[in-house]
Design a protein around this nucleic acid. Structure first.
Lengths: 350, 350
DNA sequence: GTTGGCACTCGGTAGAATTGACTGCTAACA
DNA sequence: TGTTAGCAGTCAATTCTACCGAGTGCCAAC
């Protein structure tokens, strides 16, 4: 993909000449592998460019000046910066999953059964086992799906349960607690009217609620408003986080671990993070790129899941900036593709 | 309470003479506070018994011989064993929550709204914030509640959704995927029959399913079996874990943190752990007492939640064996009492 | 532009010495 | 008999030192 010519880069700072690129990549690879600063001689030995460590050194000072590398202290090797990782990832040729792992994914999707939620949850476990990073699976929002059925159920005279079923198979429930006591007959009638009113609509549709002052109309009004109230918040998004214990293995420093875990606890935050990255059109967000200070030590990989060509959730991986991008990207892509297929045609052979 | 007489203790090993008890308690308190082994002079200074360190020492060798204390190495102080903590906890006088925290709990329960799940989830966050330990809130199983409504909804000709509403306000859904294509009319009719069949029953009830060979009967049979299949597994239990990030603060050693987190990921395991402890009639399980090897560094506090006098879930706290038992026990009890009240009478003033 | 050589920097480590917080023991004492 | 002071012994933790070595920057030569 990337050119190997030596002529001066057309775009000023975004591209490096071939040798610098090779050196940078060697540093990244080595550092991902060893977690140690990488010295000039290690690079000279590993990369296939036939130059001496001294030459590598002078290239490295340039790379450092341009912001791709950094030095922990004077007498240490170099470590990639976020920008360095970014270059590396942008010039990464697509990796493929190991045969055993591919097999594992195939078997998983061949055997998986059950409700959407269960599939997503198990997928997040799968993804985290494949990569040994923490995984995030975001399910489709049901904002654009239509309502198939609504029902108001009497729990006690002042407490009713509104249960709505959507065309994507999701179910939501809400309490409806009017200020008056409703009879069984009234609740049943309200339920009937809600069905007539809402079936086929989406949560975004405006519907004509009855304005009468009787109990039934009041029940209908409250039900509709409680149901539509769900829309503005991100609530109702389904998030499944798998392998949060990996955080303890993969990051060092108690404080970092604690911080990352405490972010993962706030699922809404995680959803919006993944959404942000997708909206930026990225598949990897490194360090500060996602503008999320507490996760500045992390890289996040995302891959969208689509149903009928429309976005319907995503899978993600969260690791340290020195994560194994090749493998992790491959895993995320393979799993998201399988998920897409799984939800696209109910029948999945693959 | 305990005698000061010098005659041999009536119950052989379960009780200690007053001075030993005081010394043991001083060691536990100190060690919980400092996380360090406690020496004889520290005990002599802190406890109000007017004896010299030498005397304390000779008592300590006895306590060690009897298994209440242990010595990390020869020239170190003493550390409580699980048995030592057990004695401490058994002789703990009930603590009360700090005023600020009591206020926080009151405000929380005064303001909390929404579905049961939401309340439980927020409660788990509350509990973990109160104590800075990881909290577990187990919701009621709906095994004993009755079915209020069942509905079969057509997603597509071969894929239907069974939605059941229970008297405790919980909703479950299951896919029903017959091998034949069912018409809309057939699904509606099956839904009607299911209602007639199941309303008022529990998941444990035996019901008479139709044995005819038509589509409707097949739908009914499959729906009933799929619904009842839920029973044997613990699945459907609701668990909410709050403050898992505390694990990183409270335990030391990456490996311990990882192990605990990975247990917490398996929610079924957590439920059965809490259930076990409750079944043993304990409110605290220390170290190996719960017989759960990976959590041998942990203590677990549980407090049952009841509705109408029947067990309906529990709240729990998970911390290191050297946790602040007084405060944690108080918090768990206060919160479980509030929860009980919250679910008991819908109206909670307190 | 590339290279070998060289002086310099500085974190990490290994070993020795020291400290100090403990203990267990013993002999004297009330 | 229980309690105490005194004392020798143990051992983890700390501090210090020296030193090693990986790695750099610079420079002169090619």
């Amino acid at each position: 993909m990337a050119r190997r010519t030596t002529k001066a880069p057309p775009s000023p700072s975004n591209d490096l000449d071939a040798r610098k690129a090779t050196i940078l990549q060697a540093v990244v690879v080595e550092h991902i592998d060893t977690a140690q600063p990488v010295g000039s001689s290690a690079v000279a030995a590993s990369a296939d460019l036939q130059v001496s460590p001294a030459t590598v050194r002078s290239e490295m000072v340039a790379l450092e000046r341009e912001g791709y590398l950094a030095q922990p202290h004077t007498s240490a090797g170099r470590v990639p910066t976020d920008k360095g990782y970014r270059f590396f990832v942008d010039h990464l040729k697509a990796g493929v999953l190991g045969a055993a792992q591919q097999q594992q994914v195939r078997e998983f999707f061949a055997g998986v059964r059950g409700e959407v939620e269960d599939v997503l949850e198990q997928t997040s476990t799968l993804l985290s086992e494949l990569t040994s990073y923490t995984s995030v699976v975001v399910g489709p929002s049901h904002a654009h799906t239509t309502i198939l059925s609504v029902q108001l159920v009497n729990l006690d005279p002042r407490h009713h349960l509104l249960v709505a079923v959507f065309s994507d198979g999701s179910v939501v429930k809400h309490s409806v607690t009017p200020t008056f006591e409703a009879t069984h007959v009234e609740v049943t009638e309200a339920s009937r009217q809600l069905n007539a009113l809402l079936i086929g609509t989406t949560l975004e549709s405006r519907v004509q609620v009855p304005s009468r002052h009787d109990h039934v109309a009041a029940l209908v009004r409250e039900s509709v408003s409680v149901l539509h109230a769900e829309q503005p918040t991100l609530d109702g998004e389904q998030v499944f986080i798998g392998g949060s214990s990996k955080v303890a293995q993969v990051f060092d420093g108690v404080e970092t671990v604690r911080r990352v875990l405490s972010i993962l606890e706030q699922e809404l935050l995680v959803v919006s993070l993944v959404q942000d990255i997708l909206d930026q059109g990225l598949s990897v967000a490194i360090g500060s790129e996602h503008g999320f200070e507490p996760l500045s030590a992390c890289a996040v990989i995302v891959a969208p899941v689509t149903v009928d060509g429309l976005p319907a959730g995503a899978v993600g991986l969260l690791g340290p900036t020195r994560m194994k991008y090749r493998e992790a990207l491959a895993a995320a892509e393979v799993v998201s593709a399988h998920l897409t297929r799984h939800f696209g045609g109910e029948d999945d052979r693959g």
